[in-house]
């Protein structure tokens, strides 16, 4: 380590949550985008906001970043109200956003060199380049980067100041599978440093892979919060037993499929139960049920 001159800031271990939101309301014109959203993100955790497009994920993040005014509710981010907080507060935040730098005509390295001058705690540029896998493109112009490479540059810019809390708004959209996995590793490294991460995604596997807790946003509210494996526990307990009878398909939803099976087998003392299956909903089924869409149906 040769970075003693700009050591990362100490990790805060206080009990105060990194993010607290109560009753957040936001309307655009006559449309209510956020309708009383509550949210807590603990220090050091990775929290994923999961939901379909238009559910209010990005608006929530923008309110937390202090770039969007809210219509009602209380918001605290790192102990301050984003609507009034100043530069010293911003210096503790990292944001991975859509705008990719300072200008198309700059190289990747020039872009990082430039923005390094906006912070008092910059990560070394070479370290950043390696972390996001852009070492080979360091001298390429931003204009010539692929969509995925631009996202990686955005990620590098988002964590350049060694933030305490990072907002990642759909960070892997447009990345190929290799880049996605590299990015996931980057998020894990950030967390290992004690950084709090709040990410939005509409990829279930990403939420399951990275998040300690997942919050499902639908209709401008948080409809469920749980670790990925426990998401929709109530929905998941229910199994579906399905088989065929001479009259057609039969289907029974039950929390005790064994009992149903026992009865079924008793009814077929010698021979198969035609096309018998027992299924439990996967993460995707649970998610679709939570956001009020049915598999294969129109998400709106």
């Amino acid at each position: 380590m040769t970075t003693t001159a700009v050591a990362p800031p100490p990790v805060r271990t206080g009990n105060a949550p990194a993010v607290t939101v109560r009753g957040l309301v936001k309307t655009y014109g006559g449309t209510t985008v956020l309708d009383g959203l509550d949210l807590d993100v603990h220090r050091g955790e990775c929290f994923a906001l999961l939901g379909p497009n238009g559910a209010g994920k990005t608006t929530t993040i923008e309110v937390l970043e202090g770039v969007r005014r809210r219509d009602a509710g209380t918001v605290s981010v790192l102990g301050e109200d984003p609507a009034t907080a100043g530069r010293t507060w911003r210096a503790r935040l990292g944001v991975v956003s859509q705008g990719e730098g300072a200008g198309q005509a700059l190289s990747v390295r020039e872009t990082l060199d430039h923005f390094a001058r906006y912070t008092s705690t910059p990560r070394p540029v070479d370290e950043l380049l390696a972390a996001v896998g852009l070492t080979g493109q360091a001298d390429a112009r931003v204009a010539g980067l692929s969509g995925g490479q631009r996202r990686r540059l955005a990620v590098a810019l988002g964590v350049q100041n060694r933030p305490e809390l990072v907002f990642l708004d759909e960070p892997t959209t447009g990345m190929d599978p290799v880049a996605r996995r590299q990015f996931w590793q980057l998020v894990r490294d950030l967390r290992a440093d004690g950084t709090t991460v709040l990410l939005t995604t509409h990829y279930l596997d990403e939420a399951a892979e990275l998040a300690d807790r997942v919050g499902v946003v639908a209709g401008g509210r948080l409809v469920e919060v749980a670790p990925p494996a426990e998401l929709g526990a109530g929905l998941r307990r229910e199994a579906t037993v399905r088989w065929r009878e001479p009259g057609g398909w039969r289907e029974v939803r039950t929390e005790q499929p064994a009992g149903v099976l026992r009865d079924l087998l008793a009814a077929h003392p010698c021979g198969e139960v035609p096309d018998l299956t027992v299924t439990r909903p996967g993460l995707e089924d649970v998610y679709l049920a939570l956001v009020g869409a049915t598999p294969g149906g129109d998400p709106r």
Binding site: V67, R90, S97, G99, G101, Y118, L157, N161
Partner: peptide, 14 residues
């Protein structure tokens, strides 16, 4: 329009 200013705002640029 390109979002470059949005980036500056997030960095707390005066």
């Amino acid at each position: 329009e390109a979002g470059l200013l949005g980036r500056l705002q997030l960095l707390g640029t005066p």
